[in-house]
Design a protein around this nucleic acid. Structure first.
Lengths: 213, 213
DNA sequence: GCTAGTTTTTGACTATGAGTCGTAAACCTG
DNA sequence: CAGGTTTACGACTCATAGTCAAAAACTAGC
């Protein structure tokens, strides 16, 4: 599944089924694994049918579901992956495919609705204790933009002042030195930041209960 | 896979293969999924061959691996589960099966060594931001016992004073009101605690960046 | 070029959670 | 009852996080 912040909301890419099981319901992109194929390769292959895979900045496994109410006629397992796309990109998608706000899903096929909500929770956790933001934010950004991303993904207000202090202290983001004029209505130009790492890294201060020396 | 704190160390239950692929190497309990079978049911079925499943206090999915160097002759996927056993229990295990310290693994079959290490990291995270301790600690315990569990699982020193304050503040543990004489050599009797919940629950103070009001 | 309006940055202040350490409490044995 | 042992408690310090208001840096209009 692919998530992206669009129009100030966290959205997921779904396609509308045209055929029998769960006809007209919205489903996650996906499909069958081929003999000898790697899980991640299969994911990328099926994803490619719906979106330009090169624009997916992060991909990780969510979990394997088989025990829930899937297609009642077939017994199968499904491994769900979570992919993230950076703010501002607008990948081309086919006719049957649309972005939907995660907080306002249409009727979904299989157990896909629950899986999307699980992914949202996973993402919220990662945003808090890792540098996962790099995969949702543009390569360089102002604090206002980054704040928008966090607000949409976390689902609550975030103070820009605080966001900056926390992420800078954790050495997750750093200023590039550039500045960017803010909007057309004037205002002090904003500093431009970037994420230090472009690979997922757990923020160290998992310090809970660790002695200081 | 089943983890337990034994002899002051985090240990994993492994069995020694007697037959061809990876002969004599140590492997995680497991086996093939049957048609129509639920993932968790399959795990419990295979686990039952090596250990009394009723003594497994917590079971969760770790991930599905297929792309790594598994049995070179067969193409297959494997979904790993993490099970926890409480301190003090000593389940009966078959001849070919032994507990091994996670920090000192024997030569392992397939990619099982890496999977065990991944499980250790997952567990360390959960101990820090959830009540996962309930699955490793006995039903009731003194702070000294709980401290032993945390030291073994986290791999670093833990202050008993601090452990108590943190877990009580988060409402993860609570005193039972009882006391328990400490060892044979005298000393003040220790208070007896228990975990409030016996279901996994994320500790709320995921407060990162959340406004206070 | 000056003033008003806008947006961002900065710093001071406060609150809270966590780590350390010394001392008191409560027990044992001889 | 004295000395040893283990646990609990409280005071102190430090680090991180949240709030707020003032300063800085710009645009637009006059």
């Amino acid at each position: 599944m692919v998530l992206q912040v669009r129009a100030g909301a966290l959205q997921v890419l779904l396609w509308q089924r045209a055929r029998h099981p769960w006809r007209d319901a919205w489903a996650l992109p996906g499909g069958l694994l081929e003999e000898g194929e790697t899980l991640e390769a299969s994911i990328r292959r099926h994803l490619a049918a719906k979106v330009d895979v090169r624009e997916v900045s992060h991909l990780e496994q969510l979990g394997t579901y088989g025990d829930s109410r899937r297609d009642p006629e077939v017994w199968e397992l499904a491994t769900a992956y979570l992919g993230l796309v950076q703010l501002g990109l607008d990948p081309h998608v086919p006719q049957d495919t649309r972005w939907h706000p995660v907080d306002d899903l249409p009727p979904t096929a299989f157990d896909h609705g629950a899986i999307v909500l699980a992914a949202r929770e996973r993402l919220r956790g990662k945003l808090s204790y890792s540098n996962a933001g790099f995969a949702l934010a543009p390569p360089t950004f102002t604090l206002a933009e980054l704040r928008e991303v966090y607000v949409a993904a976390l689902g609550h207000e975030v103070s820009a002042t605080n966001l900056r202090r926390v992420l800078e202290r954790r050495a997750v983001i750093e200023p590039t030195g550039e500045r960017r004029p803010s909007g057309s209505a004037g205002g002090r130009p904003a500093e431009v930041f970037r994420f230090r790492d472009t690979q997922l890294a757990i923020t160290d201060p998992f310090a809970a209960l660790r002695p200081r020396r």
